[in-house]
Write a protein that binds this DNA or RNA. Structure first.
Lengths: 217, 217
DNA sequence: TAGATTGTTAATCGATTAACAATC
DNA sequence: TAGATTGTTAATCGATTAACAATC
C-alpha cells in the first residue's frame, strides 16, 4: 500500500506546473528533468522523483511531453474542474484575494465573500457578492468541496472556521495569526505575514551583527 | 565553528514568541518545554532543542522564565530595535499589509509605500506616504537594513527587486508568483497564494476521489 | 548502434524525537 | 532528599541526491 505523495513533493507540483505552462506557451514540446529542474530552481533527481509519484509519464532518452505532463499534473492537483473559493473577510486582504489573478485560469472560482459589516453585505466587490456570516452554510452547500480562505481579524478567525467546518468545509487557508483548532479531517494551510517578516529580521540581524563584528575586529 | 541555527528552527521562533507573549500577558512567570510545546503544537524535545540554539536559558526542574525568554528570543530575532519596512505596490494587498496589526509592536515600522500610479504618489494610505519608484533609493538609504515587501503585479516584481537591491536592500518578502533572481547575499522569502490553494486542492481532490471510490465499492 | 535521459535504488544528509544523565 | 525538568546524546525517520541500469 502506497504511503501517498510526500507533502514536500505536493508543494513543488504547483511550481513545476507554472514552469511547464510557461514552456508550453513558448512552444516547447518536450522538456528534460535537467531543464525543468533548472527553471524550477531544484535538483534534477528531485524532479524525476517528484514526477514519478504521478506516474511514468516520461520517455527515456527524450524527456517529458510538456502538454501531457501539464494535463497529468493538473489532474493530480484537481485543477481540471471548477472548485469554489469562499473568502471570509471583505477588508483589504479579502479584496486583494478577490482581485488575485491566476485563480480562475486554475479552476478556482470565487463564489462569495463573507463579512459582518452591514454596509458591505449585499454589495459586489471585484465582482463577488458579499454575504453575512449566517449565509455561510448556504454558500458552502451550493459549492461542495469548496475552500474557505480566512482573511478576517484574528479575533473572528476561530468562529468563522467553526461555522465553515460545521457546514462541511474540509479545506481552510488561514491568514490570521494564531492557531486554528480543527478536526483531523480538515486541512489547514497557514500564511503568517508576521512570521515571514520576523524570519527575515532574524537573518538581517545576523548579517548586521557579523559585519559589525568584522568592522570592530 | 557552529553551523548556525537551522532554518526550520528559525521559522518556529516567532511561533514560540507569540505563545510566550500570550503566557506573559496571562501572568505566567515560568513555562516548561512540555507546556510550551503543547501551546505551539510541536514536540517537547523539539522545543528544548530549538531553545538550546539560543542559549541555556532554562532551569532544570523549573522550566523557562517567560519574560526572560521573551527578551532573549526578541533579541535573537532582532525585534528589540526598529526595522523599516517598505511596501512596493499600493494596491489592495499593499494596503492590507500597511493595515496589518502586530507590525509596530514587533519593531517593524512601515516607512513608505511605492507605486507607479501618479494619482497615488504623494498620498497617505493607512498613514503611510506613497512615493514613486525613483524614490526607492532615498527611502532605503534613510532606513538602513530595511525589508522590502513586493506586493506588485508579477510583471513589475523583478524590476522592483533589482532597484531595491541596487539601493542596498538585503531582505525581500515576495508576494508575486514566479521566481526572483537575486544575488547570493540577498534573502528572499516567498508567499505564493496560488500555490497554497493548489496544495489544498490536491488534498481535497484526493479526499473526494477516495470517498467516491468507497461509495462505488 | 551511440547518445540521451528516465525511473529507481542506494547513499547521504538533516531534522525529529526518544531517552537519560545532569541538576535545580 | 525526591520530584521535576532541562540540555544533550544517540536513534529514528524522512527527504534529498548521486549513481546507474533500463531503454528510448
Amino acid at each position: 500500500m502506497s504511503r501517498g505523495i510526500p507533502e514536500a513533493t505536493v508543494a513543488r507540483l504547483p511550481v513545476y506546473l507554472r514552469v511547464l505552462r510557461e514552456l508550453d506557451s513558448e512552444g516547447n514540446d518536450t522538456v528534460s528533468s535537467v531543464h525543468l529542474a533548472e527553471l524550477a530552481g531544484v535538483n534534477a533527481a528531485k524532479v524525476r522523483k517528484d514526477l514519478s509519484f504521478l506516474g511514468s509519464y516520461g520517455t527515456r532518452g527524450v524527456g517529458y511531453e510538456v502538454p501531457y505532463l501539464i494535463f497529468q499534473m493538473s489532474r493530480a492537483l484537481g485543477l481540471t474542474h471548477e472548485r469554489g473559493v469562499v473568502i471570509a473577510g471583505a477588508g483589504h486582504l479579502g479584496q486583494a484575494l478577490a482581485n488575485y489573478r491566476g485563480f480562475s485560469d486554475r479552476g478556482f472560482n470565487i463564489v462569495a465573500m463573507i463579512d459582518v459589516d452591514p454596509s458591505k453585505i449585499g454589495m459586489k466587490m471585484s465582482g463577488v457578492s458579499v454575504v453575512g456570516p449566517e449565509d455561510v452554510v448556504d454558500v458552502v452547500n451550493a459549492h461542495p468541496g469548496c475552500i474557505v480562505v480566512i482573511a478576517t481579524p484574528q479575533s473572528a478567525a476561530q468562529a468563522v472556521a467553526d461555522r465553515a467546518i460545521s457546514a462541511g468545509v474540509k479545506s481552510l487557508l488561514n491568514f490570521a495569526p494564531g492557531v486554528l483548532t480543527v478536526p483531523d479531517d480538515v486541512r489547514v494551510r497557514k500564511v503568517d505575514l508576521g512570521l515571514e517578516l520576523q524570519v527575515l529580521s532574524f537573518y538581517a540581524e545576523q548579517q548586521e551583527r557579523s559585519s559589525a563584528g568584522a568592522k570592530s575586529a
